[in-house]
């Protein structure tokens, strides 16, 4: 079992994740990620898809794994890594369904995902989670190891194997198609102060 329920209600996960593990993660859950995650962002995704199109092997087997959209700052001597917060996830939307088809189970970034990815998360039983956007210094403290495994020429965009310990994230899109941002924002909208097209009618 790769999902551990903690006494405070948070959940700790560790790859590889099964479909059953993913089904236990629901919108709004606070999750601590431990173990191995693969760092890959824009340029790495582009190359991975090109390799798949060419029938070539890719840097890691996505089955059951977690990808973290991050391009860290260079590590200072004696440090494992530099700042390492998430980048905007929607830029990877074009590439994500292909990796989900190959069994990728977890995605970590920041910001929302488009309808195609949300649908693909349902179809392939996978989950998208957001880390603290702009919290790069805090994220660095949760990373215990890093190793560049492919595309070193891409510098900060190289593919890395990261060993993380209790990296805090929250579930934004679960495998049942829910979206946490939609749910979270609506109760706080103050329609009376806004032009008509921005009113949600959700607050009495």
């Amino acid at each position: 079992m790769s999902v551990e329920l903690l006494p405070d209600g948070r959940k700790r996960i560790r790859a590889p994740l099964s479909d059953e593990d993913v089904r236990q993660l629901r919108v709004g859950d606070v999750v601590l990620v431990s173990g191995i995650v693969y760092a890959a962002r824009d340029a790495a995704h582009k190359r991975i898809i090109e390799l798949l199109d060419a029938g070539e092997p890719i840097p890691f087997d996505p089955a059951g794994q977690i990808v973290y959209y991050v391009g860290p700052t260079p590590e200072r001597p004696g440090h494992v890594i530099g700042s390492a917060g998430p980048t905007t996830a929607s830029r990877m939307d074009r590439y994500t369904p292909r990796l989900l088809e190959l069994g990728l189970k977890g995605l970590i970034g920041k910001g929302g995902r488009g309808p195609t990815v949300r649908e693909a998360l349902k179809r392939h039983t996978a989950v998208y989670m957001a880390a603290l956007g702009g919290g790069g210094a805090l994220a660095a403290l949760q990373i215990r190891g890093q190793r560049v495994i492919a595309f070193e020429d891409l510098g900060p965009e190289a593919v890395r194997e990261l060993e993380v310990e209790d990296l805090p994230v929250w579930v934004v899109n679960d495998c049942e198609g829910r979206d946490f941002y939609e749910q979270a924002v609506a109760p706080w909208r103050r329609d009376e102060l806004l032009p008509e097209e921005f009113r949600l009618g959700t607050r009495p």
Binding site: G71, P72, R76, S83, G134, G135, A137
Partner: peptide
């Protein structure tokens, strides 16, 4: 979240880790 951002500011100010990885 704002408490975390304040901690992130304080940690970065120690000079080891930039505030954000996107510099």
């Amino acid at each position: 979240i704002l408490d975390l951002l304040i901690r992130n500011q304080e940690l970065a100010a120690e000079g080891e880790y930039p505030y954000c990885q996107d510099t």
